[in-house]
Simulated scan of single mutants.
Amino acid sequence: MNIKIVGAGPAGLYFAALMKKHDPRHRIDIFERNSRDATWGFGVVFSDRALDFLRADDEAIYEYLMPNLETWSQIAIAHNDTRIGVSGNGFSSIGRLELLTLLYEYVERLGVKIHFNTNITNLAQLGEADLIVAANGAFSWIRSENEEKFGTTVDWRPNRFIWYGTSKTFNSLTLTFRETDVGVFCAHHYRYKPDMSTFLVEVEEGTWERAGFETMAPDQTINYCERVFRNDLDGHPIISNNSYWRKFPAVWNERWSFDNVVLIGDALRTAHFSIGSGTRLAMEDAIALFRALRECGPDLQRSFSRFREMRLPAVKKIWDAANVSIRWYEDMNRRVSTLTPVELAYDYMTRTGRLDHAEIRRCDPRLAAAYEALHPEVIQG
């Protein structure tokens, strides 16, 4: 099979690896517009459950990646200077560029060709192909140019976020909420290597406007955020990597393919970073598409239908939960101003409806007991 993949992110790279390992006769080319050492952002995160799927499906890639991951066994929610640790939530993280570099080397050893600095802007540029995989991210031109065929909807959410890093290393994935005179600032921060952490800052749009970020230069924005989080950064700087304020696009496609073209990863659907499932979903897409093609053979339309059939229930469940999580942050000014630290942590953990009080009690009896002391009615519930 002659396979052309647009986008050298986790979805495209892992799909290429699975196909090439299964049948080395496949000719697989990946086209990436950026250079080999270019990336945006800092670290990416996996939950323990996300890594469980990888271990079950591909022990070799799991063992290849694991030595490069930072791990921790709990998360924390900080309400100003009060920090609430929550047990039973294991996570691992890795630098985005480091993850991509490991995957580049993995697929190249298998014989997959990656064409860096190659900006494909229309399908005709790809030439002859049996299968075209659109793995070119949340802003996929393949999807945007064929929205009617895919049944695409894009819902731009109002909160603003900016993806920074810092040399301050944190010992768990932490959400720090800081009240200021213009509104609440939330930092999503976690260590992704021994000397670096992701430090993503999110605010409601009204807070962004009142702070005056629209007219600030990049260094002024960094200085402002460093002042807000000075107690958390301990004198360490915030570091930019072409960082800028953005809004999150909630992308969905009713149809996942047309002709010989199929969407995977963020091109297919986006999941808000607050649930830490974007990379997991991308790699699970790759596994499902590979399995569908292996099961259905050269009949692409049957393979595409099977791919959607296998993935839709899990994808829709996570996508729905992610969208509930988005809206939780869109009301964080009110939540932080009216909830105690324990209530905020509990509200956060139960925000998507996937965890109820019984599950909180099982995962972290201390948090459950502290919440019960404030709300004894929950015990009867």
Results as ranks from 00 to 15, higher is better:
2 N>A: 01
18 L>Q: 02
131 L>G: 02
332 M>F: 12
162 I>T: 07
7 G>Y: 12
40 W>Y: 12
45 V>L: 15
185 F>Q: 03
208 W>N: 03
143 R>Y: 06
47 S>T: 15
295 E>Y: 04
65 L>P: 12
259 D>Q: 09
45 V>H: 11
142 I>A: 00
151 G>Q: 07
54 L>A: 07
326 I>F: 03
65 L>G: 07
188 H>Y: 14
103 L>Y: 01
237 P>W: 06
183 G>T: 11
113 K>A: 11
64 Y>I: 01
197 S>C: 04
251 V>E: 04
250 A>I: 09
267 A>P: 11
154 V>I: 14
371 Y>A: 05
75 I>R: 08
180 T>D: 06
172 S>E: 14
9 G>D: 07
288 A>L: 08
114 I>V: 14
60 A>C: 05
117 N>G: 04
381 G>D: 10
107 V>A: 03
175 L>N: 11
209 E>A: 13
318 I>W: 01
323 N>Q: 10
133 V>I: 15
118 T>A: 08
274 S>V: 08
239 I>T: 10
178 R>C: 12
308 R>C: 00
277 S>R: 01
234 D>W: 07
273 F>E: 08
152 T>E: 08
15 F>E: 03
116 F>R: 06
16 A>R: 04
97 L>T: 08
112 V>D: 01
330 E>K: 08
344 L>D: 00
159 N>G: 01
262 V>N: 01
259 D>L: 00
271 A>K: 01
244 Y>P: 01
117 N>E: 15
361 R>L: 13
270 T>R: 00
304 F>N: 02
236 H>A: 15
30 I>G: 06
229 F>I: 09
59 E>R: 15
320 D>Q: 13
330 E>Y: 05
6 V>Q: 00
25 R>M: 11
329 Y>C: 06
90 G>L: 06
136 N>L: 02
337 S>N: 14
51 L>G: 07
182 V>T: 15
161 F>N: 03
39 T>P: 00
205 E>T: 07
165 G>A: 11
276 G>C: 03
256 W>G: 00
239 I>R: 10
107 V>N: 02
352 T>F: 12
47 S>Q: 13
86 V>L: 10
255 R>I: 10
303 S>D: 00
291 R>G: 08
64 Y>W: 12
92 S>Y: 14
40 W>C: 03
199 F>N: 05
194 P>S: 15
160 R>S: 05
66 M>Q: 11
371 Y>K: 08
233 L>N: 09
241 N>D: 08
